[in-house]
Design a protein around this nucleic acid. Sequence first.
DNA 1: GCGACACTTCACTTCTAGGTGAACCATACA
DNA 2: TGTATGGTTCACCTAGAAGTGAAGTGTCGC
Lengths: 120, 120
Amino acid sequence: MPDIPEDLDRVFAALANPHRRAFVYLLGLQPYSISQLAQLRGLSLPAINKHITILESAGMVRRRKVGRTNVLTLDRSSLRALQAWLGQYHAYWGTSDESLENYDEYLGRAVEATSPKEHP
Amino acid sequence: MPDIPEDLDRVFAALANPHRRAFVYLLGLQPYSISQLAQLRGLSLPAINKHITILESAGMVRRRKVGRTNVLTLDRSSLRALQAWLGQYHAYWGTSDESLENYDEYLGRAVEATSPKEHP
DNA sequence: GCGACACTTCACTTCTAGGTGAACCATACA
DNA sequence: TGTATGGTTCACCTAGAAGTGAAGTGTCGC
């Protein structure tokens, strides 16, 4: 029964945007500033600020003030949490290619309203 | 230089919703119908239909008509693609806990507008 | 055939994401 | 001290997500 923390909402939502995935990629290479990222992606400073705030609240990026510039760095732990979540499911599901092994069995009881374990 | 396919937008967006993560979990156990999922999650049929459509367009769920009921099954390949994407980054980033090893180096050139490799 | 059931589609509401330009704060520097 | 630079905040716009109820469509079963 794998756990599904609420934080994953933010992590998945953060990675659902190609700009933000690019930021994760770039910050994996080296730290960047807000205006550098704005220049690289052709976006306005407020847009970058919003993206970084979203990545911050997902726990994926840290922001440190050095003088008047922000030093943005990647926090890899959240991606390891994602990895752990995926691995949990991988272990649970086994190695079969599809979930159709239960297909025939399902057709026998499709009509009755089965109520398996609750899942938040 | 890891590839970042557009399909990941849909996969991450699909998994950013707790209802849909629950559906992925449940369909990993056995096939379900639309109305069964509606009953389990306390949502209306149109709501479930929308969620399943989103999961379908992300390539994570398949829908087969059997009589008048939908047989929903999980397609594990999309999750393996996600695993592959994560693994790619894991290999790229190495094993260090933070990306701060470049921090001092960064401070030296923070002012000049560096323009590293373009990233779509 | 006809009623019940399982969706499906439609019209609608509410909320949020993602973007902008303009104005504002804070720091570096000549 | 004055000015340019890096960020931040604000008001605003548009598009899409997420939900609903009501009405329509297709199939099962008597």
